[in-house]
Design a protein around this nucleic acid. Structure first.
Ligand SMILES: [Mn+2]
Ligand SMILES: [Mn+2]
Ligand SMILES: [Zn+2]
Ligand SMILES: [Zn+2]
Lengths: 171, 171
DNA sequence: ATAAAGATGAAAACTATTTACAAAAGTATT
DNA sequence: AATACTTTTGTAAATAGTTTTCATCTTTAT
């Protein structure tokens, strides 16, 4: 019954990752496939971004990383983020605050809209609404046919006042 | 018959502007209403942006202005653009190129989408398509009700390959 | 014309991001 | 595990777009 327990248990996160890695799947393998190396800073940075549900800036990530790895520099953060974006693991957003923000997309609805509060600056995911099925697909079709434009990525951003700011704070 | 000609002629652009100005309409009056002054640099800058159909950067505007007014500095361009955006006369776009671009919106469809070519960098207006009527209105409704978000502005941007880049240039 | 407030230009300051370069770490091979 | 080769890194310096500072010049109301 001991062996039975062992055989029947679900693969842990770590085991799943190692399996993916051997099979050439998963983010680590994706990095390697590009001829790049798997390093401590890269692991740490990916972990921070992929475990966060927020939209983090390079500085945000740096400060988080710095707690555990005081040796990792901000330059490495920037370099790694660029790599992860190129690999397609992260999306880079420029909401007009003066700094870019990064987000890990796996697990979320493919293309989700964003709500930016003009008062408090909060960035909110709009993951409950499938914008494609809600009408964006029609616009996309029209755009690509009317302009012969090969759409690779869509960005839909709403600027306005978030719930709290409408109620409470004036300005 | 001379006087008749005079009386019946259509108001010229300049006359229309002066009338608007006296009545407190038009962009000049809007500036004044904010307690700001009408100056040579401001007139020149507004003229350049409002007469262009492109999305101009501060640098673009500066270079254009510089031909006629070599004395006007880049700082004034930035300051004036900020003022014109605050007044609502211009829209500021940040497409992720590292510099902001400005656009005069009057006369165009209220909220139009933008196409950014990932290969040549071209920014294209998508003014032929009324994105609201094409489905954005539905998404907006859903967003503002589901998230209690008071939408003030919408941005829809498509990144991909423009017609020329799909045909011709590989990368 | 005058005075008060606002706007300007030049230079300096800021800020997010990138680059240069020598040292350190990852990887494939022995 | 030592080697050799290449990539990655950390520090510091460099960029680039934009903002701030401040003394001088304009605009506008009187
Ligand atoms: Mn998001
Ligand atoms: Mn436009
Ligand atoms: Zn808010
Ligand atoms: Zn193109």
């Amino acid at each position: 019954m001991f062996s039975k327990l062992n055989r029947s248990h679900r693969a842990s996160s770590v085991e799943r990752h190692m399996n993916d890695f051997r099979r050439g799947k998963g983010w680590g393998a994706q990095i390697k496939r590009m001829g790049r190396r798997m390093t401590v800073p890269r692991r740490a940075i990916f972990k921070v971004v992929s475990n966060s549900s927020k939209h983090l800036s390079a500085e945000d990530i740096y400060m988080e990383i710095h707690k555990k790895y005081p040796g990792i520099g901000l330059t490495t953060i920037y370099r790694t983020l660029k790599l992860l974006v190129k690999t397609g693991l992260l999306i880079k957003h420029e909401f007009g605050e003066g700094c870019a923000r990064y987000e890990y997309t796996a697990g979320k609805i493919k293309e989700h809209a964003h709500l930016i509060c003009m008062s408090c600056g909060k960035v909110q995911d709009c993951s409950d609404i499938d914008i494609e099925k809600f009408g964006l697909d029609k616009i996309s079709k029209e755009v690509s046919s009317r302009y012969s434009f090969n759409i690779k990525r869509k960005r839909l951003v709403f600027h306005g006042l978030c719930e709290e700011c409408v109620k409470g704070g004036k300005k």
